[in-house]
């Protein structure tokens, strides 16, 4: 979206802020209860409707492996899987995730092991500062779900919604292709402790 200089941005009614005291709609509930499965554990919480999924994960559940990046749904750092599909968790309300299954980067390694995608990012030097990495990894897993053997170009297209300002992407592409191979042919690879 672009903001033409000569026009004011769209606004709700800015002047009148209703007090929070009086319910006036039959369906009004200020703190709906949600039930979410996150990285294999089930959580039930009362949340404000305006709470973003990323803030719920970080501040309520302590899942700080998912960072907030741009906060405007451009950068993809906060990408998680919602019922198996990649989403930018800064652009989803926690109430929208009610009843859903969420996987964050913290849910990938089981019992101290690393996921093949995490290993490939490590081994191919696919990160420098690491801020974009959780989102890159989750978006890459989503890509491989639909396309288990992507070309370089397909990896670049699949990760178009994830920005990295360090690596220039070359090693990220290498890592995703390496992980794809490892995940297709797990038997060929020795299991690392």
């Amino acid at each position: 979206m672009t903001w033409p200089d000569q026009r004011a941005p769209p606004q709700g009614r800015l002047s009148v802020k209703r007090t929070l005291s009086t319910p006036r709609r039959p369906w009004e509930k200020r703190m709906p209860r949600i039930r979410v499965e996150v990285d294999g554990a089930t959580y039930e919480d009362d949340v404000e409707p305006r709470l973003l999924l990323v803030h719920y994960l970080r501040e309520r559940l302590g899942k700080v492996g998912t960072p907030v990046g741009c906060d405007t749904s451009n950068c993809g750092a906060c990408t998680v899987l919602l019922d198996g599909e990649s989403v930018k968790s800064c652009s989803v309300l926690a109430v929208q995730a009610d009843g859903a299954d969420v996987t964050t980067v913290e849910g990938l390694g089981v019992g101290g092991t690393t996921h093949p995608m995490q290993r490939a990012f490590h081994e191919e030097h696919a990160l420098q500062c690491g801020y974009c990495t959780p989102g890159m990894i989750m978006a890459s897993l989503d890509l491989l779900r639909e396309n288990p053997d992507p070309s370089d170009d397909e990896v670049r297209e699949g990760l178009e919604g994830n920005l990295c300002r360090c690596t220039g992407y070359q090693n990220i592409v290498k890592a995703v292709r390496r992980a794809a191979k490892d995940m297709r042919e797990p038997a060929e690879r020795e299991v690392t402790p």
Binding site: Q11, G12, R13, L52, D71, S73, C90
Partner: peptide, 13 residues
């Protein structure tokens, strides 16, 4: 969602 976060839109429901 970006409009809500930037408070360019302030709907009350």
């Amino acid at each position: 969602m970006p409009l809500l976060r930037l408070r360019l839109a302030i709907p009350d429901a």
